[in-house]
């Protein structure tokens, strides 16, 4: 189970609303490499993880991603407050506004609704951990792209924090993969589904 903690992981205080920035950053809420996909990916995959370290790692990173989902939602919310009809039309935000007003909805920047097809839960720890490392890199690139497009220091500060977390998670998943292969037959790591075809030495 989960218990809510009534704070963000990192402070967000955006002074100036900007609907164009909201439309860009929206993608990390419900887009292809966004935080919703990340949390569902890890929290679903963890059931098939064969070792205690990997069960813990996927539970904890999946949980942190839920906190990041909340942070991205907060950014979008703070960027879309007190907008005039003119600002909405001028910024290109009108195509979002007509369906969702100022509500936060899981879709990509281009308006494609979130889909579970963005993620996989394969039941194979090596396949899943390899996907997760790629996913962290793709999210890091998306945050880099946001930093190329957004000037506001209040927004950039938070995006930089989220970008750093992708790098830390990539490192942890890499360590998790190494801990797993250390327990498999060193002559052939990648030809079997750990825990199904070959027993993993659970300590």
């Amino acid at each position: 189970m989960w218990e809510y903690q009534k704070t963000l992981q990192y402070p967000i205080r955006i002074q100036n609303p900007n609907p164009l920035y909201a439309k860009i950053i929206q993608s990390q809420y419900g887009g292809p490499d966004g935080e919703l996909g990340a949390s569902l990916r890890y929290l679903s995959q963890r059931f098939a993880m064969p070792t205690p370290e990997l069960k813990g790692l996927l539970t904890d990173i999946g949980t942190e991603e839920l906190g990041h989902l909340e942070m991205v939602g907060t950014i979008v919310h703070q960027l879309t407050r007190n907008l005039s009809a003119e600002e909405i039309k001028r910024s290109g935000f009108e195509s979002y506004f007509v369906d969702h007003t100022n509500g936060v909805y899981p879709a990509s920047s281009a308006g494609v609704p979130f889909t579970a097809a963005y993620l996989q839960s394969k039941g194979d720890a090596i396949a899943d951990l390899t996907e997760n490392m790629a996913a962290e890199q793709k999210a890091r690139v998306t945050y880099d792209n946001i930093l190329r497009l957004v000037d506001d220091p209040d927004v950039r500060d938070v995006i930089k924090f989220l970008r750093e977390r992708e790098i830390v998670h990539f490192q942890r998943f890499g360590e998790g993969l190494r801990l797993l292969t250390d327990q498999l037959n060193a002559k052939n790591f990648y030809a079997f589904t750990p825990g199904v075809d070959q027993p993993v030495d659970v300590h």
């Binding site: 704070t7 963000l8 992981q9 990192y10 402070p11 370290e53 813990g56 790692l57 904890d60 990173i61 942190e64 830390v168 942890r172 360590e175 998790g176 801990l179």
Partner: peptide
């Protein structure tokens, strides 16, 4: 106070995550 609290909470979380792979 809020920023200080969040910083300490985050430091604990990041160490927790580190200990998942360095128990």
């Amino acid at each position: 106070l809020k920023v200080r609290f969040m910083a300490i909470r985050f430091s604990i979380w990041d160490l927790h995550l580190y200990l998942d792979t360095h128990p």
